[in-house]
Nucleic acid binder design. Sequence first.
DNA 1: AATGCGGGGTT
DNA 2: AACCCAGCATT
Length: 364
Amino acid sequence: MGGWASAERRRALREQLVAWQRQHGRNDLPWQRPATPYRVWISEVMLQQTRVETVVPYFERFMGHYPQVADLARAELDDVLGLWAGLGYYARARNLHAAAQRIQIEWGGELPEELEALQALPGIGPSTAGAIRSLGHGLPAPILDGNVKRVLARIAGIEGWPGRSPVARELWALSAALVPEEDCRRFNQGLMDLGALVCTPREPACLLCPLASICTARATGTPEAYPTPRPARQRPRRPVRLLLIEHADTLLLERRPASGIWGGLWSLPECPPEQDPLTRAQALGAHCVPTGELPQRHHALTHFELVLQPMRLQWSAAATAVGEPGRQQDWFRPGQEALPGLPAPIRRILRDAGYPIEEGPRGP
DNA sequence: AATGCGGGGTT
DNA sequence: AACCCAGCATT
């Protein structure tokens, strides 16, 4: 950390950042009024790898349903997943639900203050634990999300991709060394706000930065070179055939396995590459005839790209083999009843097929 | 220590 | 098309 071990420099940085946050930071986000540990927790989990603007409407709707830990703890998992549908990373919703039940039982409905206790809960890692303790409880704790990684890497000139352990350790050490005993809530909020508003990935606004005079990356003339980007990765394409089976005004949906992509959500039945779609439909309980084409949809994930190939089929007669063991499937009426929580790309395919599916979070 | 996991916005 | 985002769990 070099010169950052100096107490003088740390103190100057804290004071300038806290003053900047008070004047220019974000102080009106939904989870900041009021900033209770519960609300901070829910927002932090929603914000994992997800942008603020995307989260805001989901957070408001979620709080309307589950204003307290106890409400979430006694909710049905399916309802929680339904409110999460469209946000992605659905394991987050399952972890949230399980953690709420543990908080209710083990902590009397109050989130613990200690980092170790917070991290013992499912879905809470080092950064979310630090955020709950500092932003929620107002106690000192370091955080290290994407914004903070960028800000600290630039200030201290830390080289290397933060996904590598030695680099991450150095960033955590710096974040911890900077944490003030007092005003930690505003200080951490300032780190995040600076990354979001000034110290942006490209074209950082160094002229507006309260830390420009002490910033290592700024002195190099190319601050945007920090942090080192992740190594280029190849992203293979994976074709996935989906069956849109219709019968009168009903549509066949299937629940996904709890683990894996779209875990626990409902979706269109998938047809394995080696299987004939009509044979697959028959195994699901429906003799079918093809009834038309639907456009392909590309769905990019971190490490591969799905090429979704929906096939539209019409139920013609009941098959002898009805259903499959270990799988849950059912007919739904898209126009007349609320559909279960569906992944965003599946909702898009249903829109392509002419069903009245809206974008974004659905109404309460 | 490295990899899998959604979805959207920006450039 | 590539990159990034208020990361965590699993191996």
